[in-house]
């Protein structure tokens, strides 16, 4: 009986001692996967004014709205070379997520939903399977003045072989959305 009691007491005290050890300050976590900033740079072939579309949300999922900027209008009929840069500015220095997407190019694809009359997009890059990625593309601005939305969507794990997906049709793509922003643009 005595031994049992003793055993109990030893057990209790030992577990409590073990448990009451760390009271350290937790380590700060800077979210690794958040895309805080997407910059779409459109450089006109044969010179002219570069158009930059940017969305920047420095608190990730936080309450502050992303800041969306459009540097200026597209010139009618001009062909632009487009490229996309993704950053996570929560980390210091900012992490280049473009590289991650490029490395896993078979699991990612950008889709461009362009309003009527604004122009057309054609992919100019491809993954090992010959499917487009969208980090580089060509945008041909519409021939007449127009206004509307230029939406850029990045899908993770889409079905790149589904009908129309390699032509940029998003409806059959599936997958999860990593980023989706609609820019209000105009053609002059």
């Amino acid at each position: 009986m005595k031994t049992i009691k003793l055993l109990f007491l030893t057990l209790l005290t030992s577990t409590f001692i073990v448990s009451c050890s760390d009271d350290d300050t937790p380590q700060q976590i800077n979210e690794e996967e958040v895309i805080t900033t997407m910059t779409v740079t459109l450089i006109p072939q044969g010179g002219g004014t570069t158009v930059t579309l940017q969305t920047r949300d420095l608190d990730g999922d936080g309450p502050t709205q992303p800041v969306i900027t459009v540097s200026g209008p597209f010139a009618a009929g001009v062909i632009y070379n487009g490229s996309i840069e993704l950053l996570n500015e929560l980390e210091n220095p900012a992490e280049d997520i473009t590289e991650e997407v490029a490395e896993e190019d078979d699991e990612h694809q950008f889709f461009f939903t362009v309003g009527a009359g604004l122009g057309t997009v054609a992919y100019s890059d491809m993954d090992d399977d010959g499917n487009p990625i969208g980090l580089a593309f060509e945008f041909t601005a519409g021939g007449a003045a127009a206004q509307g939305l230029f939406a850029v969507t990045l899908r993770h794990e889409p079905d790149k072989f589904a009908p129309g997906v390699s032509d940029g049709v998003i409806n059959n793509a599936g997958g999860e959305t990593d980023i989706e922003t609609a820019f209000q643009v105009s053609v002059q």
């Binding site: 409590f16 937790p26 380590q27 700060q28 976590i29 979210e31 690794e32 996967e33 999922d61």
Partner: peptide, 21 residues
Amino acid sequence: RYQENFPNPDTGVKRLIPDYN
């Protein structure tokens, strides 16, 4: 009762439930 919660920071994702005693 004594309870201790430890969310491992190695996740690289914001903690859902914080460290607490």
